[in-house]
């Protein structure tokens, strides 16, 4: 079992994590937008477009947040507020 402090494994783990976070948020955003279009208002493609934009923003935000957590140990982040 590789030790958790190993920088290679920590880095690999972080890279894999951020990649999926970006993609998942984009898919959820687009999917919600598309669902609103199709089942609620019939305004295709506007809900999809707005949903994708929000999804992209959400993905960026969670990627940014996990990168931040990586740089400073969680206690420092909490102190900054």
């Amino acid at each position: 079992m590789p030790p958790p402090q190993d920088p290679l494994y920590a880095g690999l783990g972080q890279a894999v994590r951020i990649g999926t976070e970006l993609l998942a948020a984009l898919i959820v955003g687009g999917g919600l937008g598309w669902a609103v279009d199709t089942y609620l208002f019939g305004t295709i493609p506007w809900g999809l477009v707005i949903g994708l934009v929000f999804g992209l923003a959400a993905g960026m935000r969670s990627a940014y947040r996990s990168a931040q957590r990586w740089q400073n140990p969680p206690t420092d982040v909490d102190k900054q507020g």
Binding site: E21, A24, F54
Partner: peptide, 18 residues
């Protein structure tokens, strides 16, 4: 709020898919 809702919904999905 919408951005955070999306990122919250994305959490379990990204966890499973990854």
């Amino acid at each position: 709020i919408p951005i955070e809702i999306i990122s919250q919904i994305a959490r379990p999905i990204s966890l499973a898919v990854r």
